[in-house]
Amino acid sequence: MRVEYINPFVEAAYNIMTEVLQTEVERKDLYLKKTTQPVMGVAALVGLAGDVEGRVLIDMSQDSAIKIASTMNGEKLTSMDELAKATITELANMITAQAVTKLFDLGFKFDLTPPSIITGENMSVSDANVEALIVPLEMPQGLVEINVAIRERA
């Protein structure tokens, strides 16, 4: 997978999370995972189909998700309730919208699915024939991984 696919997502996530959380966000080193990998507890999933195809996961622990949603809403949330889910969905929307604008500018053409929120323990994601690139972002609310598996259509 080409790094230029993940960069727009990482930059967008960095910009948007810095803005909506009004806090420092630290970008950690990129790493690569093959085929099946565990996800952390709450994941926003966006699918891409077109010139490029694949998916983007914005992955975090439930605790981080609740803290992020609390900060974003100015409310002390205690569970992954409707408001927390809607907030993480909106966060994913904002990140993908900004990233996709950049990819469109680079000339890629594809459609997106609206974000789905997946929650649960001991989950994993499998991507056939494409490795995932992951960039962790660290902030006071916890760790958020931008996990992208995209390839050019054969």
Partner: peptide, 10 residues
């Protein structure tokens, strides 16, 4: 009036 920048923007 809201302490959340995100909600204010929404």
């Amino acid at each position: 009036v809201d302490d959340s920048m995100f909600v204010t923007k929404q």
